[in-house]
Design a protein around this nucleic acid. Sequence first.
RNA 1: GGGAGCGUGGCGGAAUUGGCAUACGCAGUGGACUUAAAAUCCACCGCCUCCGGGCUUGCGGGUUCGAGUCCCGCCGCUCCUACCA
Length: 891
Amino acid sequence: MKAYDPQMIEPKWQARWAEAGSNQTAENSEKPNYYVLEMFPYPSGDVHLGHVRNYTIGDVLSRFQRMRGFNVLHPIGWDSFGLPAENAAIRQNSSPATWTYTNIERQQTSLARLGFSYDWSRVIITSDVDYYHWGQWIFLKFWEMGLVERRTSPVNWCPSCATVLANEQVLGGGFCWRCDSPVERRELKQWFFKITEYAEELLNDLDKLDGWPERVKQMQANWIGKSQGAEVIFELCDEHGALVGEPLTVFTTRADTLFGASFFLLAPEHPFVAQLIADDNQAADTRKALEDLVRSAATNSVAERSSGEREKTGAFTGHYAKNPVNGELLPIWVSDYVLMDYGTGAVMAVPSGDQRDFEFARKYGLPIPPVILAPDDPLLKALAGQRERVQNDVDWQEAYDGSGVMVQSGEFTGLAGGKDSEGAAAVITWLEGQGVGRAAVNYRLRDWLISRQRYWGNPIPALYCDRCGIVPVPESDLPVVLPLDVDVTAGKGLADYPQFHEVICPRCGGPAYRETDTMDTFTCSSWYFLRYTDAHNDTAPFASTRADAWLPVDQYIGGIEHAILHLLYSRFFTKALRDAGLLGQGSVELSKNAELLRSGEPFAHLLTQGMVKLNGEVMSKSKGNVVAPEDMIATYGADALRVYILFMAPPDKDLEWSQEGLEGIWRFLQRLWRQVFTLSGQVGQVEAERQADGGSRDAHAADATGARVADPVKANPAATAEAEELRILLNRETHRVIGKVSADLKRFNFNTAIAALMELSNSASRYLRLPLDLRDQALSHRVATTLVLLLAPMAPHFCEELWDNALGNAARGSVHAQNWPSFDAALAQPDSVELAVQVNGKIKARVCVPLHASEDEVREEALAAAASILAGREPKKLIIVPNKLVSIVVE
RNA sequence: GGGAGCGUGGCGGAAUUGGCAUACGCAGUGGACUUAAAAUCCACCGCCUCCGGGCUUGCGGGUUCGAGUCCCGCCGCUCCUACCA
């Protein structure tokens, strides 16, 4: 037996696995398919512990499912377009491509060194033309389907990244997801994917995702932000009530408060505001006030503008909106607390029912008529049943937005008011009858802005022709190849390369300008899981039959930071590709989750793994608190690192890094190593031979476990009986642990699975204290085999070496190709169990009874055991929980 | 403001449906082995105790024969989201 040396065995097995191609996935296996996927990495430097955790979880699952008889697809790739490559290239005076591909090579080496069982023949690199070609193809397909639009709209602009961003990429109330800079609003013409057309389906289908964490589904639902309410039309009037232009529409969730509107608000970006400023007859002071508001809204960062603490400012336009329910003329103001991209950019202000309107009204001296009163509001006594408005103000400290009774609300007075109330429904019905409004649904979700003013991305396959307008690049002209000689260090982009953008219009043959914007990197990651099923297809993004055979992904694993971004976009892509007829059409009945596939859902189960932290803080280069996986592997080996990271916390929780903990696992593996050799008979054999030689001076030396070998006394009957007892216990424990580890791995309870293996190892240690001639060699070997098989998914090299070397199974092939041990509950059951005996809820005694003892038997035993406590009192009640406890109630 | 989650020893964490709280590991203490150290092995390791026992899962109530687990109300922490009309 050699000492456990991971530096020797890990590279050895990695080389053999690679040589044998043992992780390549068969395409037409008789085994059922199982697709395990971890979110692919961005090649932004070295592999860190977060990656190790993510990919270890996926690898354990892959190996476990292979042993359980599945044909597993477990691929890897790189999400390699994006801004960090450009920034790094500028810093290092290199090119984005060089930086990217150098990092990919480094990361690939690191991942291989961790022993991950990827099908390396299916690697996808999104910046490879073989891949992004089909991203362009999908773009054209979406265009054909009417899902692509180029339009002018207020958008998020990151001044530091010098590009626009999608709404989902603006975090924390107005900061860039990449560089954390405050984001600005700009009015620009940009490319969009019309994800809002799928808003309702994206929301409803969340209910089908039973395998997703509730938290993630909730976050997506909140992001989609469905609101039921009404659209209400207000006539635009001058101060005398004469109509002066197009009517204005508002969206409200509180139609029941319509009688409480006392003014009307427009967002600074509302088209009517621009019209007012442009009006030649506009009073100079009004124009200036409006211009100031528009300018400040445009220049303030999104974060500044959306701060709730900021004092609300506004300007009166000189115009009025006529309230359709009572004909009242409401002064129209402009204020930047109204957002152009939610609802219609116009709002009816009900200061008694909305805190923002309340504050605005107080500041500008506008009336605050109460219309919804809480049942305990003192005003209710005075106003109950009051239909006409008599009270035009309140002495409240804040608005009341709860439910209550409608007052001063004409014919609706007395109805219940509130969100989704009877009163709101009645008002909506009335508005519909009058043709001045209708029930409406509004979503918070915006269309996905996908164009980026950056070089290192997938070129948008479109061009501009003076004669033909915007023209899609014909499919036959794909791919639009990204030139690699663009010098980003000189601050250049595609617009500086005429050979890229000066093209001939495919429609008219005239000169045209090719689009120089590239696509958001999230478009690349929104379908890569489909490409893995058919990674080398050069006539289509993927063959439908292949995708249908594998999708949806059975288990997806990644960080919670993608709860909205990547996971929402991927769901949208998958649904759109289904509608394009590319997915879930033909052989769906063959796939495992046919219903999900038909719904266009890409991921059946989702595990969001927690972060790896040090002293409660996220590890980062800037904080200088990074623990490098390479260093840990160099000292303890990949297997110890893998087992440690699985052991220290459940996978979805944050993990606090502990060097001592890792050393504990290192010790466990070394102990287990020696133990397996001893159990397998190899070490014991040596020891026995030595003793047979007449007993050397080493007869008392420690055997491989370090335990002293007992004197080779003649077995006496008592010792034999004890050994038999231990044999039965160890056999039972072995079967119990098979059941426990199997169940735990299915539920991703890796930490308790490892704990159970430690328990079995501890039991085996105790057994090994028996003299060699009293041990059952067959049982010992079986225990060793069980330990090695059960640990194999988590410590693959360690177990492969033991399987091959200690257990002598080289002829049976790799440990990873073996069948998972089957669990027989009967073999794990003890003969007798100890029951706790409770008297009035407190444990007072314990009794030992045979397993499955009859109720009468148990009752009798329990009463006897508790006799001194009961002291003659008659049990009022007696509850037996089989094989657990007996609860006796007296008095 | 809205939403979600969490709170168990010195620490990381266990405890399928309510059923013997603290598994497993780390740290610690004592012992064996050693000239010594390391490594290894063995044992102990929630709190209080008048040594009978009593108490203990953030705090206070409730349901139940029985609550870490379910319900109500607090306190504390974390994450997400946010002038969303």
